[in-house]
């Protein structure tokens, strides 16, 4: 079994999906010879040829729209948007078409496409390269929004996303593209979509997060453990549709919940989770739900971005606040 990074696991899953299914196509900007600016498509052109691995002209609206057309024809397009910051021209196609095609044709035409995009801050990137706007996509009915948090999750969730019969926005936390190596078997086994993953068990407080913030959140859980506090860490993984059951089950046990995300506070996906806790889990809660998030500011350029990103310290402090309620 190979020890791979998250970005290598993405590459492995793409290759596996292409090898298994001739209908899988990979395209986007610089995905061919260059292998993607993060190398996630490295080697695919050489292995599968230019008819299945295509460099497109520079046009994200086009990339998304072409994916809709190919998908309606039975192909399985896996389109790359180079950075999430450049996905917005594609929104029209995603919101107005990809997410609705099945519904508006009553299942006659469908949209089994995946749009991959690296997202998130903390890599000292230029402007527009660091935002986290996953909630914008999670808001759209008919879409799936999937975010892996480790190499094995990237492999299993990307395979599941490609095989899924509906459109998936697959957002890759680029800050941890190369943060850890993990043994991942290239066995073609998918992980379940629409399901949270419990990364760590604990009985005192539930920490809910996704993507790169699993790193800070797991570190916070470790710090809390040193103080004798048992933190349960839940990786949401599929933001939409949201698996509230696992979160509710955990909160029934702990009575306390801290939600952590890099995206801005207001209207972030933590707001949806908190609302659902208020609706469906209020009587289990012993303390108000705490949110540790980016501020409601424009993502700062690199000199200030460290102050924007939720830190382990802020997560620990929020957990302690939740625990102050008797």
């Amino acid at each position: 079994m190979a020890e791979v990074t998250l970005v290598e696991a993405v590459n492995m899953a793409l290759a596996k999906a292409m090898a298994d299914d001739a209908e899988v196509l990979v395209f986007g900007e610089d995905v061919g010879l260059d292998g993607g600016v993060f190398r996630s498509t490295d080697g695919l052109l050489a292995r599968f040829g230019a008819a299945r691995v295509m460099d497109t002209p520079l046009a994200e609206g086009l990339i998304a729209g072409v994916a809709v057309g190919l998908a309606a024809q039975g192909f399985k397009p896996v389109a790359e948007i180079q950075f999430m910051g450049f996905i917005y021209p594609a929104l029209d196609q995603i919101v107005s078409h990809a997410s609705r095609m099945r519904n508006r044709t009553r299942g006659r035409l469908t949209c089994p496409m995946v749009m991959r995009a690296p997202f998130g801050g903390g890599i000292r990137a230029p402007e527009h390269h660091s935002e986290s706007t996953e909630a914008m996509f999670a808001h759209i009915p008919g879409l799936r929004v999937v975010i892996p948090s480790s190499p094995s999750h990237a492999y299993g969730l990307l395979l599941a996303s490609i095989r899924d019969p509906d459109p998936v926005i697959f957002l890759e936390p680029k800050r941890i593209y190369r943060a850890v190596r993990e043994e991942v078997a290239d066995d073609g086994r998918a992980l379940p979509l629409d399901s949270c993953f419990t990364l760590r068990e604990g009985g005192d407080v539930t920490l809910v997060t996704w993507g790169a913030m699993t790193m800070e959140t797991l570190a916070a859980a470790e710090t809390l453990a040193d103080e004798g506090i048992g933190a349960e860490v839940i990786d949401v993984a599929t933001l939409k549709p949201l698996d509230m059951d696992q979160i509710l089950t955990s909160v029934q046990k702990t009575g306390r919940c801290v939600i952590v995300h890099e995206a801005a506070l207001s209207g972030g996906w933590g707001a949806e989770i908190a609302a659902r806790l208020a609706e469906e889990g209020l009587l289990s809660l012993l303390a108000p739900v705490q949110r540790v998030t980016g501020y409601d500011t424009v993502m700062p350029l690199l000199r200030l971005e460290q102050w924007y990103m939720p830190s382990e310290g802020r997560i620990v402090a929020a957990a302690r606040r939740a625990l102050e309620y008797a």
Partner: peptide, 8 residues
């Protein structure tokens, strides 16, 4: 345009 030549 990064790796994409003008003619492509």
């Amino acid at each position: 345009a990064i790796s994409v030549p003008r003619e492509a």
